[in-house]
Design a protein around this nucleic acid. Structure first.
Lengths: 272, 272
DNA sequence: AACTATGTTCTGCATAACAGAACGCAAGAA
DNA sequence: TTCTTGCGTTCTGTTATGCAGAACATAGTT
């Protein structure tokens, strides 16, 4: 399965029309505008207009895509059926319900946007969020796959994985440079992961966006596996502040771990 | 288009495999358990195991479905790609960003769970939510289609629609009795909609669930169209409390309307 | 060790899904 | 007005695609 030799056709999935339907959804999700026309979608996913139309019709009938007449044309956008499924997908990961109240407390204590994330196929994916109060608000989207090497939650989770798994993930996803502070070699990152595993919190210090600092900490279940991580996002600030934040984030992560029946970071069985 | 006479084959969509793929997602979303097996899914949507398997494989490859090995078998559940799409679907309705802070204020002021909803194909659909503080929490899911005749947000929105449109929706969706307090005739509901349009807030007074009371109010855009509604959910309580709540909810809805460039309820141009 | 209940692969046929062309419609230009 | 352009939508023939059922594999059970 994992040793499939031919990777020449990575976009060929068993069911072509289903794959294309998913392409449509992703195209609509990636669309920066507030809706796309049939032709636009057809071009985006590389099919004829009639094919795109049939796909859209099917999904409109089911509420996965919504359409609006506008003048002559028609604009398609993501339907509300997806809201339900997304909500359920998050709910099915039991962590969310338990973590959200603590996340709220973390945001109350720090006045910062806090997030809950898991590792999905090596990527860091946010599945919960509590926005900071006030008008200044970081744009943070749920469910988007983020590269783990330049994200605080990603690093917090990688720090608890066996070293060869980390290497495999980094090799598969790559470590593209996002800013001048991004760690771009496995060796450098693995070195930092050791510090993180020891200290109990991770940093993204302008490694993904200049001026943006994130502080993360892992959450452990009853098997002491790091099943999720939380983080807060803020502007770059002084080191002493950062360490104070780290302690706060770690403390809140610990409280979630305890609710899950897992150990706090200080009580972890295996040092790595 | 809207007068399609033949409704004999409501389950026949142009693309069979795509329809079935959506069936799979809905089955997984409706699944009460924490995952389903291939056979279980096949039975749920009425296809052979091999067909279900192929469908699942396609969607797993794209992250729309997640799978976990468990002993011999394998459990499938909704994938995190849906979280992103659901989040985007909500974000594309610009109201959410504007309304959420006010929703938070409403919850702070009332200590109750508050929700933001729109009308989708006649149904009331929640697209935003702020949970009440404390351990007592109403179970409220996002994106699920709810019947408008027994929901406070549904009624708040229907109250601003032309009467024939209301009748059409009620006829199409029906008005099933949910509790002994449910209004089950169009005439009775339309009578109450007049009161709601006048008063500026709507009630669901144990009409959907015994013991549960919701108070809703509509939000108006710059064209004075009711584009959304908000509500709070609470336990049944005394009438004077209810009216006090109504005023609070209406005031918060008005503040959202003003942010959208629309009129407050008291400043509405056409009385109905 | 046989048995059962899973998930997975294989195979051949019917039909469903595709592309391209034709059509309808509305808005803007001449 | 009339022509033109750009949409969305419908039609139609051909192809290969997706389907069911059976065969295979694997792990837990008696």
């Amino acid at each position: 399965m994992s040793s499939t030799p031919d990777e020449s056709t990575p976009d060929k999935y068993p069911l072509r029309s289903v794959g294309r339907a998913l392409d449509v959804l992703e195209a609509l999700g990636a669309g920066d505008s507030k809706g796309m026309g049939v032709g636009e979608i057809a071009a985006a996913i590389g099919v004829s207009r009639s094919t795109a139309f049939t796909l859209l019709q099917t999904m409109v009938a089911r509420g996965f895509v919504a359409d609006t007449r506008v003048g002559n044309g028609r604009l398609y956008r993501l339907g509300l059926a997806l809201v339900h499924l997304g909500d359920r997908a998050v709910a099915e990961m039991g962590i969310t319900q338990i973590a959200t109240p603590i996340l709220q407390q973390l945001t109350d204590a720090t006045k910062l946007t806090s997030r809950l994330a898991v590792l999905d196929d090596g990527h860091a994916v946010a599945i919960g969020r509590v926005d900071a109060p006030g008008p200044f608000r970081m744009m943070s989207s749920l469910g988007r796959r983020e590269l783990p090497h330049c994200s605080s939650v990603g690093k917090a989770l990688l720090a608890r994985l066996p070293q060869d798994e980390v290497k495999a993930i980094l090799k598969r996803l790559g470590m593209p440079r996002r800013t001048e502070h991004t760690l771009t070699t496995p060796a450098a990152l693995i070195e930092e992961l050791k510090v993180i595993a020891e200290r109990g919190y991770s940093l993204d210090n302008e490694e993904d966006n200049i001026g943006v600092l994130c502080v993360g900490a892992a959450i452990y279940d009853r098997n002491s596996a790091a099943v999720a991580a939380i983080s807060v996002t803020t502007m770059k600030r002084a080191d002493e502040d950062v360490h104070r934040l780290g302690a706060i984030v770690r403390a809140h992560a610990d409280r979630i771990s305890l609710l899950l029946g897992g150990p706090a970071h200080a009580a972890l069985p295996s040092p790595r």
